[in-house]
Nucleic acid binder design. Structure first.
Lengths: 192, 192
DNA sequence: GAACTTCGCTACGCCCGCGTAGCGTAGTCT
DNA sequence: AGACTACGCTACGCGGGCGTAGCGAAGTTC
């Protein structure tokens, strides 16, 4: 059924995608030329064009390879779940390979429909786990029944992105934990 | 003393900068070519090069022209000040001319030192007013004395940016108000 | 109205990236 | 071993953007 894949293709494919991600992180999407990818990866330019129709398809495909859907920790408590998820986000935004790619993807998503779709799909995949943990907390009674999970998500993740992309302050795990605790405190006390 | 500025220069300068911002918003920074600016503005390419040494200087200068430092509302209460500032941010991120420029600036700031400096300067200018309002609230006793203003800033502005750049949900003034109230509630109730 | 300055225009030279064609070579499957 | 397939390489044609030079026309200053 599966028509035997030539190991040479998978080898060159991996090298090209890896080099592409490196270059996008360094120079941004528009400056990531096929010729630069060829040089960096050691794969000939013509070989690249044998596997991808054009430059856009290559870059899109490269972004596709770094999707690491987070695992639902399900620690038993809302706070435990959120601490896992949000500190993992903090790590991804600072040390992870996606850290340098994120601004490029955000910018590209503003104009190119293909990147917009990819960005939306990636975000939903990430958010899905968090939303699930939140609704679980609501059902457990750890959050009021009228809690809006989407609001809560922005309140939790937003401060981390803001630190990373706008503020000059350093994004630490400690900050992530403070954010979780603060948001939970606001939601578990009755409005004044 | 002031050496009389030829009105023709100011006219062409304004047209060029305006066209540059339009194009950056539409296509992004790298795709904003001098020739496209010339066509859009109606100013000849050679005339552009008479006022700016190269493309980078032109784009930098264009970004410089849209800095509208927010005014300190000083309504008398912390909540009043923050509502003014944060809803103004929500407006700027959605309808303002800077809305479409922000992602491009963020991306450019990751790699180009000149854009990084401009981005940092712009952010500090915006944040300064908010930080001032927060410390005023601390002195008034509306916030605990050990409040970290920088933390609070990220908690307030972050969710708005996250909605605008990452989530698919719409960024409304109502969301901005909810964010302010929630962050204030968390800070004005004793930790459990 | 005369000197000065900015303007628009045409025409460059240069570099670089895109995507393609054709070839010989080296690795892969059976 | 033999057929097959992906590979690297060289060489293109093409388009497009950068930044410059030189000119005459139009606007500005005094």
């Amino acid at each position: 059924m599966t028509p035997r894949i030539d190991p040479r293709m998978t080898r060159s494919r991996a090298a090209v995608l890896s080099a592409t991600l490196e270059l996008v992180a360094e120079r941004g999407i528009p400056a990531t030329t096929v010729e630069a990818v060829a040089e960096r990866s050691g794969v000939a330019k013509t070989t690249i064009y044998r596997q991808w129709p054009d430059r856009a398809a290559l870059v899109l495909d490269a972004f596709d390879t770094i999707l690491a859907p987070p695992v639902d920790p399900d620690t038993g408590t809302l706070r435990g779940d959120l601490l896992h998820l949000i500190t993992a986000l903090a790590d991804a935004l600072t040390t992870g390979p996606a850290a340098a790619l994120m601004p490029a993807l955000i910018d590209a998503a503003q104009r190119d429909p293909a990147f917009a779709a990819l960005h939306r799909r990636e975000a939903e995949r990430r958010h899905h786990v968090v939303l699930h943990a939140i609704t679980r907390g609501v059902h457990r009674g750890e959050l009021p029944a009228d809690t809006d999970p989407a609001d809560l998500l922005d309140l939790l993740a937003g401060p981390l992105f803001h630190r990373r992309l706008i503020s000059t302050a350093e994004l630490t795990r400690d900050f992530a934990e403070r954010t979780v605790d603060l948001v939970l405190r606001a939601h578990t006390t009755p409005p004044t």
